[in-house]
């Protein structure tokens, strides 16, 4: 019984190997690092209502982006850490092919957002997932001319 199991195992391994050799099945172990991580301790030095633009630049370095939000200035720092495994399966079907992929990749799009008032004093400081902490931009009103 054990021998039969081993034979089956070898057959399965042989099939996977054959599929891999013809590039039908492939796996990728990926590790990506984008930009420097800002430690939570660096934020402890900054105080809303007290710290200035100069303090923010000194403690956190140059931001990735600077944006205007009404009369306020938004400074954005960000970093990304990706690591995980991905399996892709591609099966030729006539003129087309069917593709399937599975991944356990974890993406950390983390960042820090600092919002400063017109007086260059820090109003708000957030750290977390960039998609959640970025301020929502409002469109400026525009004059609509119609005939």
């Amino acid at each position: 019984m054990r021998f039969s199991g081993a034979v089956w195992g070898l057959k399965v391994a042989g099939c996977v190997l054959a599929l891999g050799l013809c590039s039908c099945v492939s796996g990728t172990l990926a590790q990506e690092r984008w930009h420097e991580v800002i430690s939570p301790g660096a934020l402890d030095q900054l105080v809303s209502g007290d710290s200035t633009l100069e303090d923010c630049l000194r403690e956190l370095g140059a931001p990735l982006r600077v944006e205007e939000l009404g009369e306020q200035t938004v400074l954005i720092w960000g970093w990304r850490d990706v690591h995980g495994f991905q399996v892709s399966v591609s099966v030729p079907l006539g003129d087309n092919s069917a593709n399937f992929s599975w991944t356990d990749e974890v993406q950390h799009l983390q960042g820090v957002v600092a919002i400063l008032g017109p007086d260059q004093v820090l109003r708000l400081l957030r750290r977390g997932q960039l998609g959640e902490i970025l301020p929502v931009k409002r469109r400026a009103p525009r004059l609509i001319v119609s005939d």
Partner: peptide, 11 residues
């Protein structure tokens, strides 16, 4: 053979 290892570091 079946697995690719890929590392990216951007600074």
């Amino acid at each position: 053979l079946l697995v690719g290892l890929r590392g990216v570091d951007a600074q």
